[in-house]
């Protein structure tokens, strides 16, 4: 089963050490959640580090890596 594809925004470290919201990236939801949790990316509609509830609700809390959609 193919994992749900989602869009995230990359958090880029700038030359002066600050951060910016950069390019978007489309990837599997489990990898997207992992990247958000380590601060490498952000959901387009939420703050950095915040995994949208709709990505985890109804799935027994935090999604496990490689978990397929609809399970």
């Amino acid at each position: 089963m193919i994992e749900q594809q989602v869009d995230i925004l990359l958090v880029e470290e700038l030359a002066d050490g600050t951060k910016r919201i950069g390019n978007s990236l489309t990837l599997g939801i489990s990898e997207a959640i992992a990247m958000i949790e380590v601060g490498m990316a952000a959901h387009p509609n939420y703050s950095i580090g915040f995994v949208p509830p709709e990505w985890t609700v109804g799935r027994g809390g935090r999604k496990k890596a490689n978990e397929a959609v609809g399970e």
């Binding site: 869009d7 925004l9 919201i21 390019n23 978007s24 990236l25 489309t26």
Partner: peptide
């Protein structure tokens, strides 16, 4: 369709300000 790295941006231009 939006090009790679510009999800959601299809029409002419997007202005994104912080």
């Amino acid at each position: 369709a939006a090009p790679t790295g510009m999800t959601g941006v299809t029409d002419y231009a997007r202005l994104s300000v912080i």
